[in-house]
Design a protein around this nucleic acid. Sequence first.
DNA 1: ATTTCTGTTGACCACCCTGGTCGACAGGGA
DNA 2: TCCCTGTCGACCAGGGTGGTCAACAGAAAT
Lengths: 212, 212
Amino acid sequence: MEKFKGLDEEKQQKILDASLKEFAEHGYEKASTNRIVKEAGIGKGMLFYYFTSKKDLYEYLTEYSLDFTVDKYFQRVDTSETDFIERLKKTAQVKMEAQMENKNVFNFLGTFMLSPGADMPPHIQKKYEHMLEMGNRMIYEGIDLSLFRDDVDVEKAFRLIRWSIEGYQNELLHKLEGQNIAHVDFAPYWDEFYEYLDILKKSFYKKREWEQ
Amino acid sequence: MEKFKGLDEEKQQKILDASLKEFAEHGYEKASTNRIVKEAGIGKGMLFYYFTSKKDLYEYLTEYSLDFTVDKYFQRVDTSETDFIERLKKTAQVKMEAQMENKNVFNFLGTFMLSPGADMPPHIQKKYEHMLEMGNRMIYEGIDLSLFRDDVDVEKAFRLIRWSIEGYQNELLHKLEGQNIAHVDFAPYWDEFYEYLDILKKSFYKKREWEQ
DNA sequence: ATTTCTGTTGACCACCCTGGTCGACAGGGA
DNA sequence: TCCCTGTCGACCAGGGTGGTCAACAGAAAT
């Protein structure tokens, strides 16, 4: 595993990509080390030279993904923004950037979170819990509640807004499936996304005086 | 396959349940006929006595699930209701009833719809398209648009509301995962659900005169 | 020039599981 | 006694599994 870290970035990334993809697509049990080495373009032996076992590889990937998510996503969200919807807007942008930088990490972590940590070593479980907590703070901490209408439960409004945004993101992801993400022009989708956010503001926020 | 239909209901259902579950959990390729026969409590030979092959079984299940969904779900939704949110409320109730009656069908069809019909015989593809169209009509046809606020695009409001409801349902499903569905008291969840619907009405519908 | 070290390969291992077959057999009717 | 209809599960060839290892390449060290 120290062996692996000594490789040049490019080769490391190729192996990480192949592995993340394989585990994301098939889950731990049914993921195939044979397919991984073929996809990564290395001999079978090397994988078990870098990592002692399939499980060892999987744990390395998990830790790598958690670190990546915290560094490139959670840590970059501007939590000084107190307008809930505006913060979600910025969150979405940062998330998209991180996703462009490494699509596979998100797919991998997605499947991991469906049945988390079953028998992960404690230090990884700690990291995972830390990430969850950080994600929560990133979204909810320091929000200006006075922007919301007085006649709805703010907690519930939070959730409705979050579900709406997740719904849009999922539908977009599904629509763009199969296309080469790098070649897609996202501008019109951002515009559309902002329109949805405007509607959410009109709907869940107080009417402000200067609007007629 | 006519052999299969001659079986008593109970045995048929046991085989259907085992098969739907297996395919839903593992997908077509990785589903195991051995696990199916074990779960269904029949000998290996019988499965291939009833169905000529794994593929034949899969196609039968698909058709069965499509028919079930149309009969027990889509056909039972009251489309005379013109209030969008009210209709969704009724839809959710009918869906829940159908889901209680046969949980496996919904899981199976869920995975099927992710990569639909690849090489299904035409009559099944037809059925699938018919179902999709029916689902669309069931949700959107004959809705009273005048209830919605004038300052938001109704199309977008439709989607936001649908995403919200799907978000709630998914979260609930996730929360109840592992519990025996039959023993859960759903009353409080319905109440909570209605509260969310009320908020959606307040947010996306016009303020009506008789409300202060 | 020789030995040692570090990477690297893919054939190979024992094992497991696959979809599907088939001979054996049970029991009811003719 | 002989079918016929169901029913079973041992069995088949084939393919995939995670992991090993003898062989080798080339650079570094002796």
